[in-house]
Design a protein around this nucleic acid. Sequence first.
DNA 1: AATTTTGGTTTATAATATAAACTATTTTAT
DNA 2: ATAAAATAGTTTATATTATAAACCAAAATT
Lengths: 94, 94
Amino acid sequence: MLKELDPLLHSQLRLGVMSLLISVDSAEFTWLKEKTNSTAGNLSVQLDKLSEAGYISIEKSFKGKKPLTTCRISKKGLKAFEEYVNSLKDYIKT
Amino acid sequence: MLKELDPLLHSQLRLGVMSLLISVDSAEFTWLKEKTNSTAGNLSVQLDKLSEAGYISIEKSFKGKKPLTTCRISKKGLKAFEEYVNSLKDYIKT
DNA sequence: AATTTTGGTTTATAATATAAACTATTTTAT
DNA sequence: ATAAAATAGTTTATATTATAAACCAAAATT
């Protein structure tokens, strides 16, 4: 029987964000926006959801005089991502 | 830059169906329902969408006196699936 | 000093997934 | 023989989700 796919991760944008966060220590909002090719509004909403779930942490500060949003994957997020990938493998092994 | 994920395939149930159809010649509605652990209504809708897109073919007949819905993956569907998996790999390679 | 750009958030809308309700027929039980 | 339940689905209503448009405040540019 096919496993459940964590609905929080089974979303193109959120999965993209998590995928990016896995390979860096931390990432700025603007960098994530560029890399995922998303709109700021959409990204903002999806980051909130990931944060709400405890999959990432979000830190707001300033870079010079401009606002700066910095994201980091959490232990919980990493685990969820790994489980998601594992479940997904059953679906895509050809 | 991360690639687009075919929205028709990036759905748990539809992906599950395609994944199952890949490894068989054809599959009955009831079998797909069992394997994907879905409700008949949901499955019916999602099969229609896959069929509408030309990713699968659906044949309606009778098994004895009972209606029988048989599904088969199409060439187009197979190609789309392979492309989807390929795109997805960028997201999940850890 | 007006205009544009930057870095976002909030909110409205469009799209999607899902289940509930329904249909038609068949099988089983009384 | 007929009422009840099961089978094999479809249709439709609703809840959830994704997404973009509209907005805001501050900073930089003209």
